[in-house]
Simulated assay, not measured.
Amino acid sequence: MKASLVREEYTKITQQELPACKPSLSPLAVVSLFTIIGAAFIPIGYACLRASQQVVEASVRYDDVCLPGGSHKEQEQTLLQTNGSGSACTVTVAVTRRMSAPVFLYYELDDFYQNHRRYVTSRSDAQLRGSSVSAASLHKSCDPQTLLTGSTNAAIEPCGLVAWSYFNDTFQVTLDGAAVILDDSHIAWKTDVNKRFPAAPAAFVNTVPELRGGGTISGPIKADEHFVVWMRTAALRNFRKLWGRINTDIPPGANVTVLIQNRYNTYRFGGKKKVVLSTASWLGGANPFLGIAYFGVGGASLAFALAFVMLTWLTPRQPGDSTQLSWNKNR
């Protein structure tokens, strides 16, 4: 049998006859475009770098000084045995430039992989919203931290590795010997507080000392914005999270002392902890990358514009003359 031939319907799509636009830019248009991009991006890069340089930061590491006596192993065991009380210590933050209010207080963790796939997925957003969730669903979402140790019925609330490892160090600040109020209101995203965490879970305490995280939560989660901030996981292994604001100017050379209750056991995985004081600009915190990127693109565009000028106007090629083509020279 002969195969039947199916004649395809004639359309502009099947015959590729749709109207097309193929711009052919003149050398003047190319030079003008690169020049405009360079002239626009370089001032923007300067403004971004200027804003980043105006941000004042001061930080100090405290996990290596906020420890009881003894060897490193004894210090770690002491933290595990204090059942959450930790060890109190004070650190001094050196402020060399004036810090205008508001001054933001951050805690910074190094070598903590909040971006690990299993860590990020170990949570139940439905539970945090206050929805009714079955035990099977909780076990699937929050594995491996679903049930309290030694219990087959009591579910952790909220469950999951992210909530279970809740950062529980605390900070108090004095400025030249006088106590400073740390404003911790509105430190979390409004959408997180109102949409993602409206539930009122039962208070939970980390009963497994080896994990040394998971502070106590009482009442509605939205009332504990430190927890809401912690639950928004970081993209990198080194990150900082907002703890509060100081609504007082800090003059240069001021004696800023931070009283820390050191509970969070980063010694188990070799992590580091810092406390950071920082101001902010219209662009946010100190980050020169955006300004450098604008400078790089603007400078490259001006360089391309200059190269096109040299190739087209300083050494022009006559129409129809192919002697300057590289492929023709090699023949």
Rank of each mutant, 00 (worst) to 15 (best):
C21Y: 14
K22F: 08
P23G: 07
S24H: 13
L25V: 07
S26V: 11
P27Y: 13
P27S: 09
P27M: 10
L28V: 12
L28P: 01
A29D: 11
V30P: 00
V31R: 01
S32P: 01
L33I: 12
L33V: 07
F34L: 13
I36D: 06
I36N: 07
G38K: 08
G38D: 08
G38E: 06
A39V: 14
A40G: 05
A40H: 04
F41H: 02
F41K: 00
I42V: 15
I44V: 15
I44N: 03
G45H: 10
Y46K: 09
Y46P: 01
Y46R: 08
Y46L: 12
A47C: 12
C48E: 11
C48M: 13
C48V: 05
C48N: 08
R50G: 12
A51E: 09
A51K: 00
S52N: 03
S52P: 08
Q53V: 05
Q53M: 13
Q53A: 11
Q54R: 10
E57I: 03
E57S: 10
A58G: 10
S59M: 04
S59F: 00
R61Y: 09
R61E: 15
Y62V: 01
D63L: 02
V65E: 13
V65K: 03
V65D: 00
C66F: 02
L67R: 15
L67P: 06
L67T: 12
P68V: 04
P68K: 00
G69P: 03
G69I: 02
G70D: 11
G70R: 08
S71L: 01
S71Q: 06
H72C: 09
K73C: 03
K73H: 02
E74D: 14
E74P: 09
Q75R: 15
E76V: 08
E76W: 01
E76Y: 05
E76F: 08
E76P: 03
T78L: 12
L79D: 02
L79A: 05
L79E: 03
L79M: 15
Q81A: 14
Q81I: 04
T82Q: 09
T82N: 09
N83L: 11
G84D: 09
G84S: 10
S85R: 14
S85T: 15
S85W: 06
G86Y: 02
G86A: 11
S87Q: 13
S87A: 11
A88E: 14
A88S: 14
C89G: 04
C89S: 12
C89P: 03
T90W: 05
T92H: 08
T92G: 03
V93L: 15
V93P: 00
A94V: 14
A94N: 10
V95T: 03
V95R: 02
V95N: 00
R97F: 07
R97D: 15
R98N: 10
R98G: 04
M99Y: 01
S100L: 15
S100G: 06
P102G: 02
V103I: 07
V103G: 02
V103C: 01
F104M: 11
F104R: 07
F104T: 08
L105Y: 02
L105E: 06
L105W: 11
Y106P: 03
E108V: 02
E108I: 03
E108G: 04
L109Q: 15
D110W: 06
D111L: 14
D111W: 11
D111G: 03
F112G: 00
Y113L: 07
Y113T: 00
Q114C: 02
